[in-house]
Design a protein around this nucleic acid. Structure first.
Length: 609
RNA sequence: GGGGUGGUAGCUCAAUUGGUUAGAGUACCGGCUUGUCACGCCGGUGGUUGCGGGUUCGAUUCCCGUCCGCCUCGCCA
């Protein structure tokens, strides 16, 4: 076999005169007639034109070259020379070509169902089925390489800060709370089950108790929940934990990582990463992962709205979600919130404004009343209700003539979320989201708990191992709803790329949290006994964070599709179209693992796909 | 579990109100072509219109069911 000496994409004019051996796939094939054939040979690093010329080479080779087709795998020996027919500026190697002297057909290929050239506009279903061809595309190769550079940088950076890479088990005990677990039957223990980890959370905490001091793992996490464009049941985290630290220590270590990574990949200075409290973020952006690249902030105008006769406002303000003592006093009242939309351009048409109500309904809101401020007062939509509070609205929202005001009036949660989502939609419609800007922000001071009115219990906002902030220990048991946690999220352009917290290292505090979220002492002992035991045996103060690697890479390579950054992703229904997993198992495997399906035999149904 | 949207040649798409033999580009096959680079020119093969049922003289088109892709709500501590 001809042994490769160079990569296709690496050849330049400086190589002219050298005899090289290339190996790769036939990207394109241009037969100019008897004795002159061009092919573009492709490997991981790019394309290189190879010319078979009867005047320069044996007829036998040119005859073989005539049989070449797209995606055939060949090795070719030849001399690098400046292109006789002029250079091709579209190719990095466009100045040169290889004159073939020896050709070896390593493998023929069937006509490919998709061509790497055209995969960009090919149905994703087909791309996923023939993933090995899809991955041959330069774009996909570039993404895989970038992903590799990110994980290498993480290992270098954290390794340099004395983090140890330690593996944790994949077959673990099921955890209550949180996402739905994937479960695995335990053959040696009839009727018992392992769960696949949603994250190594408890193990990394135990590693801190074990004195490992600083932990790093780039690990798969599995959550059996419905996927989204930026979410997959099986995903990867850069998982980290540190001992003898406070919130500031973790945040500065992680800021350093992000700064270094952006320096490495983009030669870009991230600068000082801003901070915002959860409360501010919800108030101003209606979401806990604010995109601060543009304005359109939301304002609570409940006090002003109360002065109108508008039934939608009045009804919303009368809504009450009762609190833990069953009264309105501790609960959340309905609100009226508004966004000022300046319209320097005419992107927001009447039709679009009306579509916002439909959009709002997906978040269970009634609709989106709106009005426009004209030279002589409010003009359209709910203008007549807004007129009496004109001066106050103008002052509260900083309105100018020509502005549109969008309202959401509902339960606090619904109104806030609706306007938070609407804000992002409006920004897209107005096309005011700046391209190429990296807006990092730390979100801090999350509430410890949220009151679940239906379950009549407190729910941990982050997870139940998150510590209250140091100044919150006296309020946390007496007034859980007011307690702020030592959690922190890192947000990039409105997307959460990392989340973590200082953990509870005191057994009593941990037991209190379990009690608050409705775990009985017996339950806590059965489900988290090992953690409570560990906390009893000398747990250092510790905390950590986990970066969502997939999402991080999505931002870096500029895609909004998580499947683009995963070599072998699954579809929205959790199917791997290449391997056709999940699939049936041999009945014997079920017997061995003591499992019997409750699904009726569906062999008769037509399930061709 | 809910909502939206899509499925026609290997691939990307078209097909009028339900009407004759379901078309085009590309890929593929054959021929021609000595400087192309999305090479070009000529010819050709290629279809269970996702699957199943129904309405109809007649269904890619209308109806019902179902499978699959994508987006999304719920969910994702």
């Amino acid at each position: 076999m001809l042994k490769r000496t160079n990569m296709c994409g690496s050849l330049r004019a400086s190589h002219v005169g050298q005899t090289v051996i290339l190996a790769g796939w036939i990207n394109t094939y241009r037969d100019q007639g008897r004795g002159l054939i061009f092919t573009d040979l492709r490997d991981r690093e790019g394309l290189c034109q190879v010319v078979f010329d009867l005047e320069q080479a044996a007829e036998k080779m040119v005859t073989l070259a005539k049989t070449l087709r797209r995606e055939y795998v060949i090795a070719v020996k030849g001399t690098v020379r400046i292109r006789a027919g002029g250079s091709n500026p579209k190719l990095a190697t466009g100045e040169i070509e290889i004159v073939a002297e020896e050709l070896e057909l390593l493998n023929a290929a069937e006509p490919p169902p998709i061509l790497p050239d055209e995969a960009e506009r090919t149905n994703e279903e087909t791309r996923l089925k023939y993933r090995y061809i899809d991955l041959r595309r330069p774009r996909m190769q570039q993404i895989l390489e970038t992903r590799s550079r990110v994980t290498k940088f993480a290992r270098d950076y954290f390794g340099g800060h004395k983090f140890l890479e330690i593996e944790t088990p994949l077959l673990i005990k099921t955890t209550p709370e949180g996402a739905r677990d994937f479960i695995v039957p335990a053959r040696l223990h009839p009727g018992k089950w392992y769960a696949l980890p949603q994250s190594p959370q408890l193990f990394k905490q135990i590693l801190m108790v074990a004195g490992c001091d600083r932990y790093l793992q780039i690990c798969k996490c599995m959550r059996d929940e419905d996927p989204r464009a930026d979410r997959q049941a099986e995903f990867t985290q850069i998982d980290l934990e540190m001992s003898f630290i406070e919130r500031e220590d973790v945040m500065s270590m992680m800021s350093g990582f992000v700064k270094g990574l952006w320096q490495e990949l983009f030669t870009y200075d991230v600068g000082t990463i801003a901070r915002i409290t959860y409360a501010d973020s919800m108030e101003r952006f209606g979401i806990d992962r604010p995109d601060m690249r543009y304005g359109l902030e939301t304002r609570d105008i409940s006090a002003i709205a109360a002065k109108t006769d508008f039934a939608v406002f009045k009804d919303a303000l009368a809504l009450v979600k009762t609190g833990p003592d069953g009264t309105a006093a501790t609960g959340k009242r309905g609100v009226v919130k508004a966004i000022r939309v300046p319209t320097p351009n005419e992107k927001i048409t009447r039709k679009i404004l009306d579509s916002y109500s439909e959009f709002a309904k997906t978040f269970k809101a009634g609709g989106v009343p709106y009005t426009k401020l004209g030279a002589n007062g409010f003009e359209t939509g709910v203008a007549k209700f807004c007129e009496p509070i004109r001066a106050e609205l103008i002052a509260a929202l900083g309105l100018e003539v020509g502005d549109i005001v969008l309202f959401a009036a509902d339960h606090y949660d619904i109104a806030t979320k609706t306007l938070g989502e609407l804000r992002q939609k409006v920004a897209r419609d107005l096309q005011i989201i700046p391209e190429g800007e990296w807006n990092f922000v730390w979100v801090v001071d999350f509430p410890m708990f949220d009151w679940d009115g239906e379950g009549k219990r407190w729910v941990a906002l982050h997870h139940p191992f998150t510590s209250p902030n140091p100044d919150q220990f006296d309020v946390f048991a007496s007034d859980p709803g007011a307690c702020l946690s030592a959690g922190y999220d890192l947000v990039l352009n409105g997307s959460e790329i990392a989340g973590g917290s200082i953990r509870i290292h005191n057994m009593n505090v941990q037991e209190t949290v379990f009690k608050l979220i409705g775990l009985t002492e017996a339950d806590a002992k059965m489900k988290f006994g090992f953690l409570l035991d560990a906390l009893r045996h000398g747990a250092p103060p510790h905390g950590g964070i986990a970066f969502g690697l997939d999402r991080l890479v999505m931002h870096i390579v500029g895609t909004d599709n998580i499947r683009d950054v995963i070599a072998f992703p699954k579809t929205q229904s959790g199917i791997d179209l290449m391997t056709d997993a999940p699939g049936p198992v041999d009945p014997e495997q079920l017997v061995e693992t003591h499992v019997r399906s409750t699904v009726p035999d569906t062999a008769t149904s037509s399930t061709t796909r």
